[in-house]
């Protein structure tokens, strides 16, 4: 029996949200001057920083470059102070390389890489504070950074997690809900077309519930896309007011 009651009888969650409610999302783009694009995003208590360099000549081994499209290089890392216990995380441990690979696959679906043959686009994401939904915070931050860098994309990529407790799908899980032993599904969506860029679920779930869970995650992603959209438009207007002749 799990110690925590993830969903109260009144339909409220641990942090007082309703089942479909998202955490507060705050974001800023262009936080660094020297990078081509950068963004900082807070999703509740999860904080992520994304930096984009490129497209540029492939560095390192030349064999990696592709003659017909750009290579996307993702690197995910977590700060030593990001979790409850302080822990040094060397580069290239299994968890972060898996996350890097997932990010790479996600953005290969969205970025128009065929416009930049023989180039490379670097995406570096760092989790500064981890409170569940690390993957989704990284994807959302990286999307903002890519838009800031002026790299052509089909659409935003929005990601969100969803869980399943007591026959109710919960959107945007926090750390307590994620580690509670329940199901957690991460979904990256291109909201306008409704195409799924990545879908990941490690736990067991009855087949009948899957559709409801995916539906909840997609609704959450669409909600997030509105927030990201506002951030980008706000920034766009601020800059274009400055550059107006």
């Amino acid at each position: 029996m799990a110690g925590l009651e993830l969903l109260s009888d009144q339909g409220y969650r641990l942090d007082g949200r309703k089942a479909t409610e998202l955490r507060k999302v705050q974001a800023r783009t262009s936080v660094f001057a020297q990078a081509d694009g950068s963004a900082y995003l807070e999703q509740g208590n999860t904080k992520a920083l994304a930096v984009v360099y490129g497209p540029h000549e492939t560095r390192g081994s030349r064999s990696k470059s592709l003659h017909d499209r750009a290579v996307i290089n993702c690197q995910f890392s977590m700060a030593t102070f990001s979790t409850a216990e302080r822990k040094r995380r060397p580069h290239g441990d299994r968890k972060s390389s898996e996350m890097s690979l997932h990010l790479k696959q996600t953005f290969e679906a969205a970025v128009l890489t065929e416009l930049y043959p023989r180039s490379q686009i670097d995406i570096y994401v760092k989790i500064l504070q981890a409170d569940g939904g690390n993957y989704s915070a990284c994807v959302n931050a990286a999307t903002l950074a890519l838009v800031d860098a002026g790299i052509p994309m089909r659409d935003y990529v929005c990601a969100c997690t969803a869980g399943f407790v007591e026959d109710t799908p919960l959107a945007d899980l926090c750390h307590a809900e994620e580690s509670g032993g329940g199901t957690s599904l991460a979904l990256a969506l291109l909201p306008r077309s409704g195409n799924i860029a990545l879908l990941q679920m490690d736990a067991r779930l009855h087949q009948d519930h899957l559709d409801a869970l995916i539906e909840a995650a997609m609704t959450a992603c669409k909600g997030l896309s509105k927030v990201l959209d506002d951030v980008v438009r706000q920034h766009l207007e601020e800059v274009s007011v400055l550059t107006r002749d």
């Binding site: 800023r28 838009v147 994309m153 659409d155 959209d229 706000q234 766009l236 207007e237 274009s240």
Partner: peptide
């Protein structure tokens, strides 16, 4: 503190410029 753009300035901006985002 991050200063937001005055609504008047962004309003006049919206009229003469067509701003778009990916998608």
């Amino acid at each position: 503190v991050h200063k937001p753009v005055s609504p008047a300035a962004s309003q006049s901006n919206r009229d003469d410029k067509h701003l778009v985002v990916p998608g």
